[in-house]
Write a protein that binds this DNA or RNA. Structure first.
Length: 134
RNA sequence: UUGGCAAAUCGGUUUAUCGCUGUUCGUCAAUUGGCGGAGAGAGGAAAGUCCGGGCAACAUAGAGUAGCGUACUUCCUAACGGGAAGGUGUUUUCAGCCUUGUGCUGAAGGCAACAGAAAGUGCAGCAGAAAAUAGGUAGCCCUUCGGGGUCAUAGUGAAAAGGUGAGGUAAGAGCUCACCGUGCAAGCAGUGAUGUUUUGUAGCUAGGUAAACCUUACGCGUUGAAAGACCAUGUAAACUGGGGAUGUUUGGCAGCAAUGUUAAAUGAUAGGGUUACUCGCCCAACUCAGAGGGUAGGUUGAUGGAUUCUGCGAGUGAUUGCAGAACUAGAUAAAUGAUAAACGUUCCUUUUUGGAAAACAGAACCCGGCUUAUAGAUUUGCCUUUUUU
RNA sequence: GGCUCUGUAGCUCAACUGUAUAGAGCACUGGAUUUCGGCUCCAGCGGUUGGGGGUUAGAAUCCCUCCAGGGUCA
């Protein structure tokens, strides 16, 4: 299975991020908070794009912030098949999911703990999307 | 052998699997992607932004004043407020000396914005008689009882205008002398700061404060990669260059003339910008000619350099010359991660063994320093504890 | 990645270019007044001037350095 998680998964456009915060919807799985919105397909072929953020307010040192971001990205890489299988359906083919993930705790997490939370987050995201469509 | 101080070096290693960002090779589509291989990928401080440079743009950039910075000497360096060596002062420890003193000499280490107070201006609460042109409270002495002389002694203070002894005097005083100290000039030593048990000279002035104004010497244009350059699209009120923009008439003087200069008359503008001021420079509407703008875009700037390592020299040293070899991150919301195992280090328990821990901290154009944070390890030097000889 | 400002009592601010025990209002505590409370009056409490070092006889003030917090840059 392809487990790569490269540059094309990164959300960079400032316009999209602004729009995401104006009209996006939220899902929580403490300590992770996710804002999501469906967008039109961009040049990249990935089913979703994501921003990972750790507030400077909670972690003073750049080392700690970088480490948490790396852990989150690693967990996402391992778990992305959940989301990709769901988005592979035909009705989502012309859309792209924009995500903004924020870490909201002042303690540095363990990898195993974060892995479970990420799984939970993706599952709840899928269920809420399905619920909203009904 | 215990602990401490200083300096220097290091700042875990290896393998497997799954990933991330560049580079390069091959291959397939066809100009940008896919697949596969190879190889690279955070620091000693990457930090703070406290200094200095490279690089870039800009006359709204120049010149002078103002302003800002630096400040023992010589050297190093691209440069510095950094560094090296030296000097001076001060302080700590140790040793020696005899006059036993807040003494002198020597050694080792630490610290110093360490130019000028003899260019000028200022400042100094309280206390004290008096605080910088000295002064007269007590005391001492003289007295015609009005007053005068005096700083030795006392007292105040952060600071009271050389010290000891002798002479001298009404009492005193560098008033005079000897020794000591201090300043100045010359000589000698040193590139120099400076030193001097060399000589002369001054009766002693010139208290402190310049991280107060200031003076002297030297240096400094401003803004910073969000600098700047290019590309695609195709034609903005933005940009570039010229005109606008300093004239015209008459007389005198210089000159062959062009022209320059000066005086008078007349016309237009007499506005704005610059780090404060002066000069200088630039600028509007309008017009002529050229050129092409926006874009949270892309490429570049951007990592081969005051580079690193080794060897042989130069120098006390910082540093540097020559030769050879090497290529050592380049991301853009920001890559260097996760999992597992082994080895090494430290600690606990302990026969093997088992368990736990591993600091400070993440490149953002690039260098040289400084400062701050830092578990632990190694080496060298000095001091120290214990034991043995 | 740069540039720049601020830090004084629990809170909001003073203290001029260095000199007295760092001052004022609000808050807090006690007392007076009132049947009780408020208002008012009187008295008190409260400070390592962000930390450290330096210059000076003397520092909130001048200088250096560290820390914390803000502002700003098409």
């Amino acid at each position: 299975m392809n487990q790569s998680f490269g540059k094309e998964y990164k959300l960079c456009s400032k316009k999209v991020i602004d729009e995401l915060f104006e009209s996006g919807q939220r899902v929580n799985a403490h300590p992770l908070a996710l804002t999501y919105k469906f967008m039109d397909k961009t040049a990249s072929k990935t089913p979703f794009q994501v921003v990972v953020s750790v507030p400077k307010r909670l972690f003073k040192h750049a080392v700690d912030r970088n480490r948490i971001k790396r852990l989150i990205r690693e967990c996402m890489r391992k778990n992305k098949s959940i989301l990709e299988d769901f988005l592979a359906k035909e009705k989502y083919q012309n859309q792209q999911l924009a995500l903004f993930l924020v870490y909201r705790d002042n303690k540095e997490p363990e990898y195993q703990f974060l892995y479970q939370k990420m799984t939970k987050l993706f599952v709840t995201l899928i269920t809420t999307i399905e619920k909203n469509e009904k």
